[in-house]
Design a protein around this nucleic acid. Structure first.
Lengths: 335, 335
DNA sequence: CCTGGCATTGTAAGCGTTTACATTTTTATT
DNA sequence: AATAAAAATGTAAACGCTTACAATGCCAGG
């Protein structure tokens, strides 16, 4: 069933059918009705490829992320997909893993014109290497690139993010103000926002005259894991620190901290205060419940998609939209 | 830059370039090299739409699920994407929510020929209504439909699943054998596998002469939630039961059970044994850690994609592949 | 009744590939 | 060296749509 068949049955030309399908041009109401009826009757759906050839678009956005099963990224992907779908766009998902070998995957996606825009979620590679940055520059020639939780100043690149540096600065400050000066900072992915969080943490320490903050920082080098493995890692690498506070770049890492405390009969938060990040579902699964930073993911994804739609519609859009995170206090802290 | 430009620069015809791109036909090695070099040099990428027109395929599979941010579904989506990617297929993600209003979304996807196969993940709608079943029947005329964790006997529909009925039967039996006869069963989504789990639970109770199992079953009616809300639900609807065991259709629901116990000063597992399902990351986040059923998601997704690839290659493939789940014992049970 | 202008519809030329079939080149056989 | 067969390559016709431009139909104004 092609547009030609429909035109035959409706007694019009394929151009008229095309106009009805695309809604745009002026078609006499009675003709429109007649064609619509035939389309409805035969359940005709335009062939996507042929459509794409004419329109050079399939109303599809690419979503690129490291691991869509990560709690945080999964939520981001879901919100993005829903927002895109609500606006008539489909989502091509592309998971790269954490190995930065995404060259082929996403450049091909862009260059083949299969997508109208590319969304990079939790861009762990932005600012990491010049080579990776180059991919973004190349890609942005073809389609707009949207960064979620990363900033990169370049034409046709739009950023939507939480101000993680400030948020982490404030978070750390509130812990120090609560009387805790020995704070273990645990992080894993070296992403743009990860780097900002570290900066905020360090700045807070320095503002209180605590030197050599890197002494308190531990990099957890495993991609995915469970709380016990994280606890064991803390045990192995940070036991000598005698920290009374712990801030993690991610809720799961923080839960690992709580596990660690349990194994050493430390009471959370009396002996150890713990703060996570992302305010995920994990916060209410552990005991005590986890204080965590809400980084406004739903707001961010909404804004990002709206910006993308605006760009695609040819409107002038903000190159950068920044929102503020917020500390949600629960039982793992006493201040 | 089109295939024509490349053919010019390489001094061959477009057909030869096309053959090089598609790797298939016999091309003289020296010619292949020459063309490859030109393609490489100019960074040419074939136009996806035009390609789709010729091939009637873009090497893309549709992944349909209710909510890709759900812990279990997110993992499934990720595994599927990785497996598809490894085999040269891309993934079009489509999240339907739990409202069954997926008609438009996925039928359009199929009918427009944009995808080569459709994967339904955690098919909450299979067998629910005749209307929904009809969509699968209609769709399967066009592309193979792959069901993850659901069974549906129809031409061109292939199923890969965990034997949830038997697995839940065995799980329940082991709890009863441990001396617990008053078992609260908590479930939420009315999916195919959800129905099977219920059946397994009830069969186990009956096999031990425990009548009216539905007295012990509670349906948690909220889409997404957190552990506290689940605990409150149990408090509200099941307090009078005085159950010593709890089995949940999902880990999060089980964590809600642990929360409930904590609020009532019940010791898990002494006063209350809890078993979850899916063996997710949550199992090691709570205290005590959660005994849960591993339903072999990675195996299932692997098998599913391999089956799809086989079908697309025109091979004869099993219509149904069933694997067995396995109980992973942790601290929330004593038996 | 004629004419110009506008609304509507039709015609046909792409869009960039794939691939059946035709043609040319190479290789093997005698 | 001639010839048949096989291999490599080229030609051109789809694929199903969009859209610029052409053609038609219709109306009001003169």
């Amino acid at each position: 069933m092609t547009i030609y068949d429909i035109s035959q049955k409706a007694g019009v030309s394929i151009a008229t059918v095309s106009r009805v399908i695309n809604g745009s041009d002026k078609v006499k109401p009675s003709t429109r009705q007649k064609v619509s009826d035939v389309i409805e009757k035969y359940g005709y759906t335009p062939n996507a490829f042929a459509r794409g050839m004419g329109l050079q678009s399939l109303h599809t956005a690419g979503i690129l992320c490291a691991d869509s099963s990560d709690l945080f990224l999964a939520k981001a992907v879901f919100y993005l997909e829903q927002e895109l779908q609500a606006n008539g766009y489909e989502s091509l998902l592309c998971c790269t893993g954490y190995n930065l070998d995404l060259k082929k995957n996403y450049l091909d996606l862009i260059l083949s014109k299969k997508i109208d825009g590319l969304i990079l979620v939790g861009s762990h590679f932005i600012g990491t290497t010049e080579e990776e940055n180059q991919y973004i520059k190349d890609g942005s020639d073809r389609v707009p690139i949207m960064l979620l939780n990363a900033a990169f100043d370049y034409p046709n690149v739009y950023c939507t993010l939480c101000d993680d540096e400030t948020t982490m600065f404030e978070t750390t400050k509130s812990m120090i103000s609560g009387g805790i000066r020995d704070i273990l900072y645990l992080y894993n992915i070296r992403s743009y926002s990860g780097i900002k969080k570290i900066a905020g943490f360090q700045r807070a320490l320095q503002s209180f005259g605590i030197d050599e903050p890197q002494n308190y920082m531990r990099y957890y080098p495993y991609d995915s894991s469970d709380a016990n493995r994280i606890a064991a890692f803390i045990e192995k690498t940070a036991k000598e620190l005698h920290f009374q506070g712990m801030i993690a770049a991610d809720d799961l890492l923080a839960v690992g901290g709580i596990k660690y405390a349990q194994k050493h009969n430390l009471i959370v938060p009396k002996d150890l205060s713990v703060i996570g990040y992302n305010n995920s579902i994990l916060t209410t699964c552990c005991t005590p419940e986890l204080t965590s930073v809400d980084n406004r993911l739903e707001t961010l994804t909404h804004q990002l998609v709206q910006t993308l739609l605006g760009v695609l519609a040819g409107e002038e859009m903000p190159k950068m939209s920044v929102f503020s995170g917020k500390l949600i206090k629960r039982g793992s802290t006493y201040f």
